[in-house]
């Protein structure tokens, strides 16, 4: 297995976006790309990352391999790469290590690191194809700010989607808060658009703690998609055009 990115920045951001939610995980490498699927330790959220082979500068995977890696260790290794350095990952069959090579574009500095692989029992979950009742596309910075703001007031947020707006509400010991975002088009700046596709109205409650973990992916993507159906996990997707995506799934809370 050998994969090379032109710039380390994307991989750094991907690892930063998931490492605090899932500690150790397996990267599944096939000839179509690298992916990971992992639950957080409390089994409430699920992360699915796909990095397509087309998104790499060069990519070769002769035999499918599952590489168990501590993401915190991977983040440590990637700290040694400059944002504009190229990154090459290498793993040989049956080897218990993965190699990282960073090269500056002027080629005057090359650094190499070897990370020990771990034995990780992964159980992949089947994510069913879902026709969502409401899909909201919005700037990822808006979602990050909304979740951060509401976290000051409560632990949970109720997201309600109507035809032309989406409402985020919370309440806690010191009071309540809500943020309403209205659909807005923007032909010249599509990344600032708020688009709401509503087939059925939806209202779901989620733990803000997890949404705040998810929005760590905001530096990867200007836009985010919230896909919701009543009584179904929320899907928060950060698309990376040409490269792949990070999708986070979160189980809703129920009234008791």
């Amino acid at each position: 297995f050998e994969a090379k990115w032109d710039h380390a920045s994307t991989l750094k951001k991907v690892i930063d976006a998931v490492k605090d939610l899932i500690g150790d995980t397996s990267w599944d490498c096939t000839n179509t790309g690298m992916s990971l699927q992992s639950m957080d330790s409390s089994h409430v959220a699920l992360v699915h990352v796909l990095l397509k082979s087309e998104g790499f500068e060069s990519y070769r995977c002769d035999r499918n391999v599952s590489m168990g890696i501590s993401l915190n260790s991977m983040a440590k290794v990637l700290k040694c790469a400059g944002n504009d350095d190229s990154v090459t990952l290498r793993h040989e069959s049956e080897s218990s290590v993965v190699n990282f090579a960073f090269e500056s574009h002027k080629e005057e500095r090359v650094s190499e690191f070897e990370l020990k692989l771990m034995n990780i029992d992964t159980e992949h979950l089947g994510i069913p194809e879902t026709e969502y009742d409401s899909i909201i596309k919005m700037p990822s910075a808006d979602l990050r700010r909304t979740c951060a703001d509401l976290s000051q007031f409560g632990d949970s947020v109720t997201i309600s989607c109507a035809k032309s707006d989406v409402r985020f509400e919370t309440s806690g010991d010191i009071g309540t808060g809500n943020v309403r975002l209205s659909a807005r088009g923007s032909s010249d700046k599509p990344e600032t658009e708020i688009a709401i596709e509503m087939i059925n109205p939806v209202s779901l409650t989620f733990a803000l703690k997890y949404l705040n973990f998810f929005t760590k992916a905001a530096p990867l993507s200007d836009t985010v998609k919230l896909c919701m159906s009543n009584n179904h996990p929320l899907c928060v997707e950060f698309p990376m055009p040409e490269v792949g995506y990070i999708r986070y799934y979160l189980a809703p809370k129920i009234d008791e």
Partner: peptide, 14 residues
């Protein structure tokens, strides 16, 4: 109060 369900209540083991 509201209860948190696990994600495994919705997605089955593949």
């Amino acid at each position: 109060s509201s209860g948190q369900r696990p994600i495994t209540a919705f997605f089955s083991k593949a």
